[in-house]
Design a protein around this nucleic acid. Sequence first.
DNA 1: CTCTAAACGAGACGGTACGTCCAGTCTTCGG
DNA 2: CCGAAGACTGGACGTACCGTCTCGTTTAGAG
Lengths: 212, 212, 212, 212
Amino acid sequence: MRKEEVAMESQPAGAGPVDHRTLPRRRGETLYAAIFEATLAELADVGYARLTMERVAARARTSKASLYKRWPGRADLVLAALRHRRGAPSPTPDTGGLRGDVLALLRDGAAQLNGLMGEVIRGLMAEGLRESTPIATVRTSMFDSRNRRMSEVLDRAVKRGEIPAHAVTPQHIALAPALVDHHFLFYGAPIPDHVLTEIVDAVLLPLLTRPA
Amino acid sequence: MRKEEVAMESQPAGAGPVDHRTLPRRRGETLYAAIFEATLAELADVGYARLTMERVAARARTSKASLYKRWPGRADLVLAALRHRRGAPSPTPDTGGLRGDVLALLRDGAAQLNGLMGEVIRGLMAEGLRESTPIATVRTSMFDSRNRRMSEVLDRAVKRGEIPAHAVTPQHIALAPALVDHHFLFYGAPIPDHVLTEIVDAVLLPLLTRPA
Amino acid sequence: MRKEEVAMESQPAGAGPVDHRTLPRRRGETLYAAIFEATLAELADVGYARLTMERVAARARTSKASLYKRWPGRADLVLAALRHRRGAPSPTPDTGGLRGDVLALLRDGAAQLNGLMGEVIRGLMAEGLRESTPIATVRTSMFDSRNRRMSEVLDRAVKRGEIPAHAVTPQHIALAPALVDHHFLFYGAPIPDHVLTEIVDAVLLPLLTRPA
Amino acid sequence: MRKEEVAMESQPAGAGPVDHRTLPRRRGETLYAAIFEATLAELADVGYARLTMERVAARARTSKASLYKRWPGRADLVLAALRHRRGAPSPTPDTGGLRGDVLALLRDGAAQLNGLMGEVIRGLMAEGLRESTPIATVRTSMFDSRNRRMSEVLDRAVKRGEIPAHAVTPQHIALAPALVDHHFLFYGAPIPDHVLTEIVDAVLLPLLTRPA
DNA sequence: CTCTAAACGAGACGGTACGTCCAGTCTTCGG
DNA sequence: CCGAAGACTGGACGTACCGTCTCGTTTAGAG
C-alpha cells in the first residue's frame, strides 16, 4: 500500500472509507441500528475479549466518537446491543411437574450462556466490579428475571404439594442457576445437558423435597 | 549467598537504567525471583486487567524479551508468579465437627479469592477457554486441591456418623466451593462471612444430612 | 501567529508527557512543521544512520502512529523534511565566464552534500534501489535540477564563444557533479575546494574546449 | 509453540538444535571458512542491509561471540568474507589498443559492482566514514588496485603513441572508474554496457587524446 | 600422554527500535 | 449550531537484533 507521496498536498482529497459529504448521513435510530448490528456481528466473529471500539466503528461505518458519545465504554455498548436484540422474554415454563419446569428453566438459561450473552458475561468478569458497573447491571437484571421465574415454578410446586412451602427460600431459588453459571464460567460452552439434569436430580430436588 | 543475589539488593531501586556491562547480570533463580516479585507487585497495585508486560519488565528491571522467552503471555506469567508465591498448602482443617470443618475450608477458599488469586481468576475468565489455556490449568489445580480436602472432611464426617456414606458424591463435594466462586465472581470481594454460613447451613448441610 | 504555535513554544522541553486532553492539539501544518523540525534536528544530532522513528516522534512530542500515518518509513520522512526545509533554489550563477560559473555550481552542490542532504544521500544508498524508492526520487530531482543549471551555464558559454556548441552533451553536463558526488561518497565531507578546482581545470574545461 | 510449562525445572534439559558435545567442534580455518560461507550466502540471500550477526551465526552454526571475537562488527565481517573469497586478481587486460584495454577494465569493475561487492559498497556508504573505517579500507584497496591497472594501460598507450605522456594524470586515471561507481550507486545494478562505452568514447578518450 | 588453558557452542541477558493496534479526546466541517 | 467523521496523543503489543556475558564442553599444545 502506497502512502501519500506528497503528503501535505493530498489533504483535501481525503479518500476515507465513506464520504459522508455525499452520502446521506445517518442519525437517530438508523445509526443506532447500524451500530448494534456491527457490535453483535463483531461479538459473534471475534468474541468479547477481542472486540474493540475501533473495529465496531469501522464495521458500522461510523466513528469512535459517535460510540463514545452514547456509551462510556465497550461493556456498555455491548450490553446495549444485547438488550436491543433481545425480543420478548421466554414465558415461564409450565410442564405440569416441578422437575420438568426447573429443567426447562435451566435449559433456557444455558441456551443464553451458550450464545452471545455467555461470551459477554465471561468478558465482563474481567472489567472490575466496583459500584454500578455494567456487570452489576447485567447481574441484577439477569438474576431478577430468573429468580422471579424460579419462584413462580417453585410456588406452583408448593401448590401442587410437591414440595413443602418452607423449602422456597432465596438460597434455594438462586441455587441451580448459580451452578449452571459456575459450570459455564469454568468449563465453557456448550453446557452438556447432563450437567443440568445432575444439578436438578442430585442437588436441587433432594434439597427441596427433604422433610423439615 | 551468591554474588548475583548481592547485586540485586545493591540496586537503589530508582537508579535509572542499569549498566549491565559492569554490574553482574542476573540469571536463573535470581532473575525469576525478581520477575515474580514485580509481577505480584503490579498485580497488587493495578490489578490483572491493567497489568502489562511492559510495566512488569520495567519494574523487574529486565526486558520484555526476557519475559516472553519464559512465558507466552500475561496469563502464564501471572500464574507462574502465583504458583511461585504459594507456600505450603493449608492443611485440611479438623475442628471435630462437619460444620466447623466445612466452614474452615470455605473461609480458606474465600480468603484466596479475596486476594490476588481472585483478581487473576476474574481476569482469566475473559481470556478464552479453549483446550489447555491458563484458565483450564488453574481450574484443574484449584478444583483438584479443594475437592480432595472436601472429600477428606466429608469422609471423616461419615466415620463420625454425622452423615450417611451415600451423601458423599462428586456433586456434593464440589457444591459449596462452587457457590463461593459464584458469589465472588458476581458480587466481588470481599466475600461476607454470612454468605459462607448460609451456604453451609441452608444448602450443604441439609443436603448431606437428609435421609435417603 | 496562531494559538497552536504559541502552545508549541510554551512547552519547556523536559515537561514529561504532554496531557493532550487539555493542551491544544496540533494538526495539519503545525504538526507537519513540528515533525520536520524534529527530524532535521535528529538528523543534525545523530545522523541518518542512527535516526529512529521513535526518537523523532518523541522529539516532536507526537506519536509513532502519526508518523507512520504520513510516511511509510524513515527515508520518506527524512526526504519530506528536507524538501520542506528547502527554500527557493539558488539562482544559476552568472560570473561572466565559464570557469567561474561552473565552479560556483559545484561549490553550491558541494555545500549541500556537506550538510544534511549529504548525510541523507549517504544513508539512502544503503536502502535498496528498486523501482521508485526514495533514493530514486531524490536522484531524479537532484539530477534534474543541477543538469538544468549546468546546461544553462554551458549554453551561455557557447553563446560567448568559449566552447563549441557540440561540446554540450548529456555526458558532459552530468560529468562534474558526478565527480563531486563520487568524492563525497568515498572521501566524506567536507569536500576540499581544491577537489572542485581540479575537476574543473583538469577534466571538465579541457574536455569542453578541445577542438572537434 | 508451547513454552516451558515448568520453566525453572527444565533448565538442565537443553535440547538445542545441534549437540556440539557429540559433533566435532570446528576451529581455526575450518571455522573461518564456515563463517565466510555463511556470510556470503546471507549477503546473496538478503543483501547487506538486512544481514545480521544473528543470522550469520546461526547459518554458520556458530555463536555470535565467535563472530565478535574476530570482527568488531558487521562491516568488518563482510569485508573479510569478500577478501577471503577473492581469488587471484584479474590480470591487466592487453587488447592491443587503448580503447579495448580501458573497456575491459571498466567491464571488470562493473562486474564486481554488479555482484556482492556492489551490495556491500552500497551498504558501507551508510556506516559513517570517519578515520580508518571499513569503507576507508575498502576504498583504498579498491582504488589502489584499479588505479594501478589503469596506469599500466595508459602507459602502454603512451608507448604505442596513442596518447601523449602528459595526458596520464591522477585525475585522468581515476576518472572512468569513478563514473562507473557513480552510475552504480545512483542507478543500481546491473550497469548497462552502453554506459561504459559512453564513458570511454564521450569522456575518457577525448580527454586523453586532445592536443596540449 | 597427560593436563591445562584457550577456543568454542549455545544461549541468557538488558536494551533499543520496530511497525501495528487501540483507547480516549479534540478539531473540523457538512447539513 | 449540532453532531458525524476522523485526526491526534499515548501506550502497549510481540518480535528482532544488538553486543556482552556466563556456562559447560572440546581440543590443541605445553610439559
